[in-house]
Design a protein around this nucleic acid. Structure first.
Length: 553
RNA sequence: GCGCCUGUAGCUCAGUUGGAUUAGAGUAUUUGGCUACGAACCAAAAGGUCGGGGGUUCGAAUCCCUCCAGGCGUGCCA
């Protein structure tokens, strides 16, 4: 869309003028990507570059002197009306009136087919939440869910072929422990003195599952072989837990294209073939009965166990197979893994493993999501291993508005720990930024209702939209595709939610300053059209962020 | 000890990858604006040694060093 076109032609023009300076001054260096910014102040134009400040040293010139020379060699691209050099060496660009007109027409005509027109022909797999099915999910999963789901939606909108996946850890050690814990609780129903494994899962949910199992099967398993009991109770409990996770995630508006089972890597033998490739490639060694991966040979700080001395492969081994499956079997171009901060140690070893398989580092993105602390009335709610009622995802969803909490999570950078005050931030009132955005939308809707017909855009006098806030609003609207690109480039969905708040703010200011329905018919029509396009952008953002689109509030 | 992350207004957080006389929002506090297209909004005041100290340069909240405080890792857990 138009802003992106202007930005790219502007970058090209700037580059050419730097090249001209290079020839003139007989200086050679490779020109990096030209940095374009959106200045705060109107007197600095709508776009600006610090290129002269950045390159001045290479020319042995002052930034101002270089900027002046660049200006002399500058070819103005379309839609740029004026170029000015400003202290200490910025070059500022002023957009033409035709640009502002073009922005509105662009949204009107091209927003609906944005995705089709921007098809990227690239497959991206986004894996997020992937909580252990051995117990209920917690609040941190809500943050992972909100961020992962929103990023996926943005990428999809941007034209990528996006595939959402939940990795179900239904194999290996922790499932063994899960089964043992369940069996022990079941046996305790009949013999309260029976032992419970030291390292088992002590949570109340295990007891509840065992009780339910007893309700169905009575004592029929109480005297059988322990292994048979473990298998039976696991087969009963695991699907229940997984179903429960699906249910809660669905309530949180998170849906997956696929639930990938770790166990399938064992069934298909992929995990063993991956282990063999690592062995054959000389990337492993045996020590104290365990099979180790030489992660240090591939850039990691320490080596890692792949197969324990008891013969059971580690989670890490299965995860290597899983990633090999993503990249080499299903041929995804890019894989994004959302990880809780407590899994950060996983990154270097996974990168090391991918290096062994010759998978380019840039194709695997990790997004670390820092922990969430729940605060209630100023006090931190402790997160213990024995999950109390208020700490599970299900109970969290009971207490809050899904839209609000998703929006809050989408506003805050993944990489900073956050305090979540259930009492204050999640009320359905003006304290919540999601209402600010929704309100802007509702306000527009009620304005639109006052007009009996949609203005004929061929006869609109766009040049009338020339007030401070009309200007700002159109400029803000023009940035939407740029924001989408930024989210995709930085894999940071928070940019979109913050943009939504900014855009709403500019709209509210415009609303207060300029009356849409006024004495002048041409001006009213032009502003009507501006409102229509603003509503379109807000609506599509609400859709992308999976928020309800309100008619009234 | 080592590794990753964090420290910005009373509180919750931004800060465009080193830029624009005065470091920004929201919230809380004080104040002004509905006989108006919806006041769930707008406007204004007040609020800061950007954790402390060094350094790098035309220029630092941003980069480097060091110290302080907190979170998370550092398992043949996941």
């Amino acid at each position: 869309m138009i802003l992106l076109e202007v930005m790219s032609s502007l970058r090209k023009s700037i580059e050419e003028s730097v090249e001209a300076c290079q020839r003139f001054c007989n200086v050679e260096f490779e020109i990096p990507k030209i940095n374009l910014e959106f200045p705060e102040l109107k007197i600095h134009g709508e776009l600006s570059t610090n290129a002269a400040l950045v390159f001045s040293k290479k020319f042995l010139l002052s930034p101002m002197a270089l900027a002046e020379i660049m200006l002399k060699n500058f070819r103005k691209p379309e839609y740029i009306e004026d170029v000015r050099v400003e202290l200490p060496g910025f070059i500022n660009f002023f957009l033409s009136k035709s640009f502002f007109k073009k922005v509105l027409l662009d949204i009107d005509e091209n927003l609906e087919n944005y995705t089709e027109k921007n098809k990227k022909n690239k497959k991206i797999l986004v894996e997020f939440v992937s909580a252990n099915p051995t117990g209920p999910m917690h609040i941190g999963n809500a943050r992972l869910g909100a961020l992962g789901d929103s990023l996926s939606e943005v990428l999809k909108f941007a034209g990528f072929d996006v595939y959402r996946e939940f990795y179900v850890n239904d194999a290996g050690n922790q499932i063994k422990k899960f089964a043992e814990s369940l069996a022990a609780r079941y046996v305790q129903i009949f013999d309260p003195t029976a032992k419970f494994p030291e390292d088992g899962y002590h949570g109340n949910d295990i007891k509840e599952l065992a009780d339910k199992f007893e309700k169905v099967h009575g004592s029929s398993y109480s005297n059988c072989d322990r292994k048979i009991l473990e298998k039976a109770i696991l087969d009963y409990a695991l699907p229940k837990n997984i179903k429960n996770m699906k249910l809660n995630l669905m309530r949180y508006k998170v849906r997956y294209d696929n639930w990938f089972h770790e166990s399938s890597l064992y069934d298909s033998g992929e995990i063993y073939s991956v282990l063999n490739k690592l062995k054959d490639g000389g990337a492993t060694y045996t020590m104290e009965g365990a099979l180790w991966f030489r992660a240090t040979a591939f850039g990691a700080q320490k080596d890692e166990v792949l197969v324990r001395s008891n013969g059971i492969p580690t989670y890490f081994a299965a995860d290597i197979a899983y990633h090999v499956n993503k990249f080499l079997v299903r041929k995804f171009d890019i894989c994004v893994d959302f990880l809780g901060a407590d899994h950060q140690g996983h990154i270097p070893r996974m990168r090391a493993a991918m290096k062994f398989f010759d998978i380019d580092d840039s194709r695997l993105k990790f997004i670390i999501v820092q922990l969430v602390r729940i605060v209630k009335g100023g006090e931190v709610v402790k997160m213990s291993k024995r999950l109390g009622k208020a700490e599970t995802l299900g109970d969290f969803i009971d207490q809050i508005s899904v839209d609000c909490s998703r929006f809050i999570f989408n506003m805050q950078d993944a990489n900073s720990a956050m305090d979540f005050d259930i009492n204050n931030t999640l009320k359905n009132d003006s304290n919540n930024p999601s209402y600010y955005v929704k309100y802007a939308y509702v306000r527009i809707q009620s304005i639109l209702k006052k007009f009996s017909e949609i203005p004929d855009k061929k006869r609109l006098r766009f040049e009338l939209l020339d007030s401070e806030f009309e200007h700002k609003l159109i400029l803000e609207l023009s940035k939407f595709p740029h924001i989408i690109n930024e989210v995709a480039a930085l894999m940071d969905p928070t940019l979109l939610a913050r943009y939504a708040v900014n855009l709403s703010s500019v709209f509210h200011k415009f609303y207060n300053a300029d009356k849409v329905r006024n004495e002048s018919v041409s001006l009213s029509n032009a502003r009507h059209f501006l409102c229509l396009q603003t509503a379109k952008i807000i609506k599509i953002i609400l859709k992308i962020l999976k928020m309800d689109i309100p008619k009234e509030m």
